[in-house]
Design a protein around this nucleic acid. Structure first.
Length: 415
RNA sequence: GUGGCUGUAGCUCAAUUGGUUAGAGCGCCGGACUGUGGCUCCGGAGGUUGCGGGUUCAAUCCCCGUCAGCCACCCCA
């Protein structure tokens, strides 16, 4: 054992990189379909960027250190502060709404466990400069379409959406004071994961009486249209966003669920999470509106490659090979080498993926390698056929063979 | 950061109450097979039993520490 990658960091062997590339390709393709432009920023930033703009939780887990120039720096734990800076620098010049996406590698110094490493890649899609709930619907639709792009359906993943303004209105309407709201949000956020008696204790410690305590649980239990009705006008934008998704035909993926709160402090409006429907994994993606972070209305979501990758593996939705060989060339003897090399290069010039044995070996051995490489066909060049200007093209899946003129092969045709 | 469980070949796992040279399957390399792959058979390489210490005549096995992984909590990109 010569050592391995640092804890929480990954080596990507070809098989794994194939999956990662597949994920990236799907992300980029859906983002492009939605008219989003790709951007990027530096992976290393000044520590200040996060201590000022992110919540305490993130700051505690920063991958931070002092560089050789005595600067306090951190590997980026999230993309939003970088995005905010980039947008702010050109806010006057950029046509709104801004629709940007990025696939940054993000870092956090925390103990790793399944689906949670010290490093991951995360698709970020953001819309800046648009207050309409149609913008919220747009991002949710994109997240759902990404899932569909991977071949997943509404029985695989579900999107649960809420609105912090709705929760706030319902709670204050039931007599809960502003100062107590933070605890209520924390309790609602955990209401599906933490035993009720523990939650009651949290509320009691925050000074909640019996009536307020049951009010919190009542609100957390509201679903669908009941939640919207209870909130009246405050629920309008949530209702419009959900209606838009239904009009797009994505309604079966979506449900209103007020237990969705999201951890980050800066969310202000609609918030949502995309879950594995079997709930064996944590959230696949999550996002929401953060109007207060910039001077503009803004919203976005993140989708990490780790949990997503595990979900795809579970569902068998992963591609097999990264490159598919069009042909594996075989020289029967040393005299056939020049002709084989000439053919190999001619085919490559035509864009055909070609490999051949790099050392002389028996036909059997070379066919074995061709098969192991997953080549579609083998082209065997031997003295007998070469006399007549031919080569043997063997279909490795069907096991059939045909003799093909070398002229045709040199021009990229196999038959 | 807290607690629990687990570390044997690249992978999945064996190894009598602690007992001598740590095995098997898969995978990898080679051969049977010098013009035809997948099958079969044979052979080979590959281990400081995570690391360090302790107990013992003797430790993969028991004890302590440490590191790593898994799980739960905390928290969430």
């Amino acid at each position: 054992m010569q050592g391995k990658a640092l804890p929480g960091f990954r080596d990507f062997y070809p098989e794994e990189l194939t999956l990662r590339n597949h994920i990236f390709a799907t992300w980029r393709s859906v983002a492009a379909r939605y008219g989003f432009e790709e951007y990027d920023g530096p992976p290393l930033e000044a520590l200040d960027l996060y201590t000022q703009k992110s919540g305490d939780e993130i700051v505690q887990q920063l991958y931070a250190f002092r560089d050789k120039g005595d600067r306090d720096v951190a590997l980026r734990p999230e993309m939003t502060p970088t995005l905010a800076r980039m947008v702010a620098a050109r806010v006057q010049a950029l046509k709104k709404p801004i629709r940007w996406f990025s696939i940054p590698q993000l870092f956090r110094y925390e103990r790793q466990q399944r689906g949670r490493l010290r490093e991951h890649f995360q698709l970020n899609m953001d819309i800046i400069g648009e207050a309409s709930p149609l913008a919220d619907a747009e991002l949710m639709a994109a997240a759902i379409d990404i899932m569909r792009g991977f071949g997943l359906t509404a029985s695989d993943v579900q999107l649960r959406v809420s609105d912090r303004r709705v929760i706030r209105t319902l709670l204050t309407g039931r007599g809960i004071k502003e100062a107590q709201l933070e605890t209520a949000f924390a309790v609602i956020d955990r209401s599906e994961r933490v035993p009720k008696n523990v939650l009651e204790e949290m509320l009691r410690d925050a000074g909640y009486g019996k009536r307020e305590t049951s009010a919190v649980f009542d609100v957390a239990a509201l679903r669908g249209q009941d939640a919207l009705k209870a909130a009246s006008e405050t629920g309008e934008s949530l209702g419009q966003a959900v209606q838009a998704l239904e009009s797009m035909g994505l309604g079966e993926f979506v449900s209103i669920d007020l237990t969705i709160v999201r951890g980050l402090a800066y969310y202000t409006g609609i918030v949502w999470e995309l879950f594995d429907a079997k709930k064996s994994l944590r959230a696949v993606a999550g996002g929401g509106r953060y109007d207060s972070l910039l001077d503009l209305p803004a919203l976005g979501f993140g989708m990490g490659d780790v949990v997503l990758g595990e979900l795809l593996k579970e569902r068998g939705a992963v591609p097999k090979a990264s490159t598919e060989l069009g042909a594996f060339l075989i020289a029967v003897g040393g005299d056939d080498m020049p002709a084989m090399l000439q053919l190999a290069h001619a085919m490559r010039e035509r864009g055909i993926a070609v490999e051949y044995g790099l050392r002389q070996a028996g036909v059997r051995k070379q066919l074995e390698l061709a098969s192991a490489r997953g080549a579609a066909r083998a082209v065997i060049i031997g003295p007998e056929e070469r006399k007549d200007g031919l080569a043997v093209v063997r279909d490795l899946r069907a096991g059939t063979e045909a003799k093909v003129p070398l002229d045709k092969l040199l021009n990229g045709y196999f038959d």
